[in-house]
Design a protein around this nucleic acid. Sequence first.
RNA 1: GGAUGGGUGGCUGAGUGGUUGAAAGCACCGGUCUUGAAAACCGGCGGAGGUUCACGCCUCCCGGGGGUUCGAAUCCCUCCCCAUCCGCCA
Length: 462
Amino acid sequence: MHDLKFIRDDPQAFDAALKRRGLAPLSTDVLARDAALRAVLVKLQNLQARRNEASRQIGQAKAKKDQAAASALIAEIAGLKDQIQQGEDEERRLQSQLNDFLATIPNLPAADVPDGADETANVEIRRWGEAPAFGFAAKEHFELGEALGQMDFAAAARMSGSRFVILKGQLARMERAIAQFMLDLHTEEFGYREISPPLLVRDATMFGTGQLPKFSNDQFFAGEREWRRKHLFETAEEVSAGTPVGVGDITDLLEKAEKTEQFWLIPTAEVPLTNLVREQILNPSELPLRFTAFTPCFRAEAGAAGKDTTGMMRMHQFAKVELVSITAPEQSAAEHERMTNCAQEVLKRLGLHHRVVVLCTGDIGFASTKTYDIEVWLPGQNRFREISSCSNCGEFQARRMNARFRAEQGKATRFVHTLNGSGLAVGRTLLAVIENYQQKDGSIAVPGPLRAYMRGLERISI
RNA sequence: GGAUGGGUGGCUGAGUGGUUGAAAGCACCGGUCUUGAAAACCGGCGGAGGUUCACGCCUCCCGGGGGUUCGAAUCCCUCCCCAUCCGCCA
């Protein structure tokens, strides 16, 4: 959510930043709505002031038993009532329209983000390690996993459809080991606090981090609503065959069902972790706050038809260890670098060749001011693929969540800055380990750091 | 699923129609006192917005929305949220 004052003060800067994202200028539209709202406000407030004053005088007149004066004032106010009502309606309408409009405008890119239209303009800023050299043709992870009998897409499709996978035996264990390894690293060496959060959240929570209102199609939805609606229709059919009930009764039931509890499935633990500070006023001494969580993530992958259709690159459900930092504004840029290094350290310890890329203005996410992607080398695909994305959201999410801190006692509150990053995507890390540690015979060597989490197992084989 | 009780400023918590934006306490800021600190005492201290060169003035905010009224934190309707008890349950 944007600061209206900023747009008012410097509409050119606002439009210029939007343009870097490839968007048309919006300040004229925003400011026109703002001006219309304020015009109504001034008119309304004058009417309200007069009404309030007259009401006070009525109270005084009645106290003095001056009935004539009171009646005259009441008559005057009667004429204002309609105008005030109209003004209030108009204000509400304009205000909510303005808010809705602002809620769909993405964050502005930081000054040091490279310009560009799409991912081809992203800039590699560092690279670590080397691609492994095999004396044989490298296979892709799903070929290896299926041959081992430990990765089953067919069975997953039978029960859940496409974009699901079932891991079995040692691969299932390795997924768990990877998550454990990451959590221990981030909590014990980097000072992140482990959190076990809800996976189902409310609308307001999803709005806070920016998934709503614009990206509801990318999300999964859970609730009693659909089930209950169906159930009620069936009940209605049964009832209509037998004992009659009033049509209104069914309507009432359906209306009630519409309002039953409903939740969104989190697309990333960024949502609950960042919302830990929603509606809070933090003490500056507790900043920065650093949270990590290992959770499943759920994504509809709408609009990804045809992309990464084979293998476990792009699933409806995947595991991820997430990192979130809450900082004072002055700290966020440095924290962003630190967070990216924390994520990168996982790959270093696992000995996985990778590079860090800064996303261009056309490729950064809705809430982000600046994003680093970490891309891991996949020998089977012979290319780098994203395994982590670390973003500094500035105060964009904090405004939506109303997350503040009091910089100095007795002074006004300020919005915190929020950052999030994958530390890392567990499914893709597993995939990367499989491809990078594959052996000629189709077995998988277990990287050193993971062995402790797998009871010393050194190799995964049939 | 059933039954109650609640949602008031940074926190606790009064307040059932007329200078109540809101008592009191805590916290915080300034001052007095003190060698210093603490204690005590005195004073200050919510947010959002509009308007003004400025001092200031005005409006809105007691979970959200709507309504009654000249006037609502206070009455009515509705929605949301929280807590407790019972039932069910990993």
